[in-house]
Simulated assay, not measured.
Amino acid sequence: MISPALRDALAGWIDHMRALRGAAPKTCEAYRADVAGFLAFLAQHHGESQGLAPLVRVTVSDMRAWMAHERSRGVSARSLARALSAVKGFYRWIAEREGFEPTAVLSTRAPKFQKKLPRPLAPEAATAMIERVELQAREPWIAARDAAVVTLLYGCGLRISEALSLTRADAPLPETLRIRGKGGKERIVPVIAPARDAVEAYLELFPFPSEPHEPLFRGARGGALGPRAVQKVMEAARLQLGLPATATPHAMRHSFATHLLTAGGDLRAIQELLGHASLSTTQAYTAVDTARLLEVYAAAHPRARG
């Protein structure tokens, strides 16, 4: 059981993350759950739940016990690393406010895990996906809408949430879009001609009246289009094309980045286009590109084939 003082401290940190760091609601909820679980473990581990004193007295042994407890519950190394990151963030904030040294927590090493590399589509598969998506709906305007959304994901490297957050005031699409991504971070994204054309084709067929503040992409009944509708139409298209289950809306964004890199794009520029806060996130694409080159080498080089 978490004490009222600890609950208040956790709420204060979440407010700080939301207000000053611009953390998204889902991110804040994940952080809150991770830290609450840690605080509940401390209370049970030490048999006390009063005040902030248990935070100050946390030792390296306590941290190891918590991590062992989480792994015994079946928590994966990846999820535990995320939880530890949240706990460290909370400790940095509370230690500064309360004036104690959080070394035991901050020095704790995250468990190692195999990072999942992005799974982009080949250029021809990405193009085929856009073409096949347009064939799924009976209503011409819905077919054009689906093609426009997927074209934006691949042609501009948008997240699905970013594409669906566009409003009618954003159309006709300009040569560049100002996109607000994760954490409220803004970036400027060039809009390629096929993306502009796809959106224009959709709007020409769109059957509902629309105000500037309303969503650009609408559902069959006129409400805001949800991400699940885009996921479903891509699922149908990938099955028809024989593509793997990894051919998702987010894979189109990965494909955008990987194909730019393959064409000689600068990693820093791609980082800006994607809106990654850290270059290390973008660097995953170099691993993807290298892996593909090694596959080609292994398949084609006479010595590699033995």
Rank of each mutant, 00 (worst) to 15 (best):
E96P: 12
R97G: 15
E98F: 14
G99L: 12
G99W: 15
G99Q: 11
F100S: 07
F100N: 01
E101V: 13
E101K: 10
P102V: 02
P102K: 08
P102H: 08
P102T: 02
A104H: 13
A104K: 08
A104T: 14
A104E: 09
V105P: 05
V105T: 07
S107L: 15
S107Y: 00
S107T: 14
S107E: 15
T108I: 10
T108P: 11
R109H: 09
A110F: 00
K112F: 06
K112N: 07
F113H: 15
F113Q: 09
Q114V: 07
K116I: 04
K116N: 09
K116F: 01
K116H: 12
L117A: 09
L117G: 12
P118C: 06
R119E: 15
P120D: 05
L121P: 01
P123T: 03
P123R: 14
E124Y: 00
E124I: 05
A125R: 04
A125L: 02
A126S: 11
T127I: 06
A128P: 00
A128K: 02
M129C: 03
M129Q: 01
M129E: 04
E131H: 05
E131F: 00
E131W: 00
R132K: 13
R132H: 03
V133K: 03
V133I: 15
V133P: 08
E134Q: 10
E134S: 11
E134H: 01
E134P: 04
E134W: 01
L135T: 15
L135D: 07
L135F: 05
Q136T: 06
Q136V: 05
A137H: 08
A137Q: 12
A137R: 07
R138D: 10
R138Q: 08
E139W: 12
E139P: 00
P140C: 06
P140N: 07
W141Q: 11
W141H: 11
W141R: 07
I142F: 08
I142K: 10
A143M: 03
A143Q: 04
A143T: 06
A143H: 01
A143L: 01
A144G: 08
A144L: 05
A144Q: 08
R145P: 10
R145A: 14
R145N: 06
A147R: 13
A147E: 02
A148K: 02
V149A: 13
T151R: 05
T151K: 03
L152S: 14
L152V: 12
L152M: 15
L153D: 11
Y154K: 07
Y154W: 13
G155P: 09
G155L: 11
G155H: 12
C156K: 09
